[in-house]
């Protein structure tokens, strides 16, 4: 087993554990923003997994997927933040 193979195995294990942790946070909450940042972390880890997979399979084409994921995940998080703010605004209006 070469050096790269060993480190790829190590990274894959670490990244998978991180996805599990993020998923636990996604289920437990307790608030909506907690779940949003858990999803954000999962997409970031997704970019990392794509990079590791491209290294292990020796196919750099997967990098294009990482580019798209990086672009889209940012928009997703921003949309969630915007939604959160609108929900709060509506709740405030009803409260008054």
């Amino acid at each position: 087993m070469s050096l790269i193979e060993i480190s790829v195995h190590f990274s894959t294990a670490m990244l998978s554990l991180t996805v599990v942790f993020a998923f636990i946070r996604l289920v437990r909450g307790p608030s909506l923003p907690d779940r949003v940042i858990a999803l954000d972390l999962m997409t970031t880890v997704g970019i990392g997994i794509i990079a590791v997979y491209a290294i292990s399979t020796d196919k750099p084409v997967f990098l294009d997927v990482a580019v798209i994921l990086a672009l889209v995940s940012f928009l997703g998080t921003i949309a969630f933040a915007y939604y959160l703010q609108k929900v709060t605004d509506i709740a405030d209006l009803k409260g008054d």
């Binding site: 790269i4 670490m14 990244l15 599990v20 972390l41 880890v45 990392g48 590791v52």
Partner: peptide
């Protein structure tokens, strides 16, 4: 090249692991 690549892989995944652990363990948002 392989050695540098392996080191960066291990350091990077360790940081991501710490991020996941922090996400689980820290007390507030």
């Amino acid at each position: 090249q392989e050695a540098v690549c392996a080191i960066f892989l291990i350091v990077g995944s360790t940081f991501i692991f710490i991020a996941g652990l922090g996400m689980l363990r820290m007390p507030d948002l």
